[in-house]
Design a protein around this nucleic acid. Structure first.
Length: 372
DNA sequence: TAGGCGTGGTC
DNA sequence: TGACCAAGCCT
């Protein structure tokens, strides 16, 4: 099953495909894994207590911040029964500075419960773990996979990002969580579930970063749908904060020698009267293929070519994402009605709004001077 | 289910 | 320099 068909079949189960991805991932992990205080060294069994403690501390918290706290806790309370005997006050004092203090309360309550109700032994199933305070869906799966080698894939923010790029998941978070969960599960190796999960997390933390991902170093880059389209940084899709819904469209940059095809926008409304290159309408949830169909029709024009990447712009009330197409026109090709050819050299004299400066710069491979 | 919960780092 | 983000959970 191709990634694309997996996306479309959202109502049907996505079967794990036979692919090299899990193997490539583990090979990369074996060479590049981070050495972290709570991780067992290769070949050594991991300690559920250390895994649990680290996972709680790492919730919405950076590895760097957690390090010293983890060492302090382990030194003072080397196992879960020791922590279960501690006073809440002591635990809170030790936690001070890490933030999200309900985690510390739940941590203590959980240690008491494991000590009292489970004989000091952590449950070894996702379901059993999930029932403990402070352990949600992610943490239960993470402990089950890492500490007990259960075949489950925890999905955190890192893995959401990696997976949404790998499969170019267009659905927005948080609605896309079930789909991403299914797709992420296809990256589980037959064995070494915990390593598969940690490999994805390390990948997300060091290579597939939110901004400027280092795709050339990624073991999966040949296989990455978003990368192939040059739009990896736009994933994961997320519902914009409140400042309007993302709209999408296409812009068409046609050149005739050293001239550019432009038109003027309607007098009223957004960017009223400003100059623009021809484009599709801008709609929330715009479909790329649909936008593509709105290209201007000119005789003597080469095929429209899609530029890699997208142009983004934020208006007061909505963000905009434009895909850009370019084409070359033969000499003396006539401009369609309502449009005109202008010399690229005199574009500075046109009433070009910023978003159009970005589009043209992107299309022609220029630096977007006087834009931003 | 959307909001609240802490802190430090990045651009 | 004000968002945005970082191994989410609880209500």
């Amino acid at each position: 099953m191709s990634p694309k068909s997996a996306l479309k079949a959202t109502s049907e189960p996505v079967l794990p495909e036979t692919s090299l991805r899990p193997t490539l991932l583990l090979q990369w992990y074996d060479r590049h894994r981070r050495r972290l205080p709570w991780r067992a060294v290769p070949g050594e069994a991991s300690d559920p207590y250390r895994v649990w403690l680290s996972e709680i501390m790492l919730q919405q918290t950076t590895v760097k911040a957690v390090g010293p706290y983890f060492e302090k806790f382990i030194a003072r309370w080397p196992d879960v029964t020791a922590l279960g005997r501690a006073s809440l006050d002591d635990v809170l004092r030790m936690w001070a500075g890490l933030g999200y203090y309900s985690r510390a309360r739940n941590l203590h309550t959980c240690a008491v419960a494991v000590t009292r109700d489970h004989g000091g032994v952590f449950p070894n199933t996702e379901e059993g773990l999930r029932a403990l305070p402070g352990i949600g869906p992610y943490t239960a799966a993470a402990i089950a996979a890492i500490a007990f080698d259960r075949r489950t894939m925890p999905v955190d923010g890192n893995i959401e990002r990696v997976v949404s790029r790998l499969f170019a998941v267009e659905e927005e978070l948080p609605q896309a969580k079930p789909l991403i969960q299914q797709l992420a599960a296809t990256l589980l190796a037959e064995s070494r579930s915990g390593d598969s999960a940690q490999a994805l997390m390390d990948l997300g933390a060091s290579i597939c970063t939110p901004k400027k991902p280092a795709c050339s170093l990624c073991p999966l880059h040949e296989d990455c749908t978003a990368r192939a389209r040059g739009i990896q940084q736009s994933f994961p899709r997320k519902a914009p904060k409140k400042n309007g819904t993302l709209r999408r469209g296409a812009a068409f940059v046609a050149t005739r020698g050293d001239e550019l095809l432009v038109r003027s926008r309607a007098e009223k409304g957004l960017l009223g009267g400003m100059t623009e290159v021809p484009g599709s309408d801008w709609l929330a949830g715009q479909d790329d293929a649909r936008a593509r169909q709105q290209a201007p029709e000119l005789k003597g024009l080469s095929r429209w070519q899609r530029k890699l990447g997208v142009v983004t712009h934020v208006f007061t009330h909505f963000p905009l994402e434009l895909v850009v197409y370019t084409a070359k026109a033969q000499a003396r090709t006539r401009a369609p009605e309502g449009m005109r050819w202008v010399p690229i050299a005199t574009l500075a004299d046109e009433a070009l709004p910023n978003v159009m400066r970005k589009v043209i710069a992107h299309a022609l491979g220029l630096s977007p001077a006087a834009s931003s």
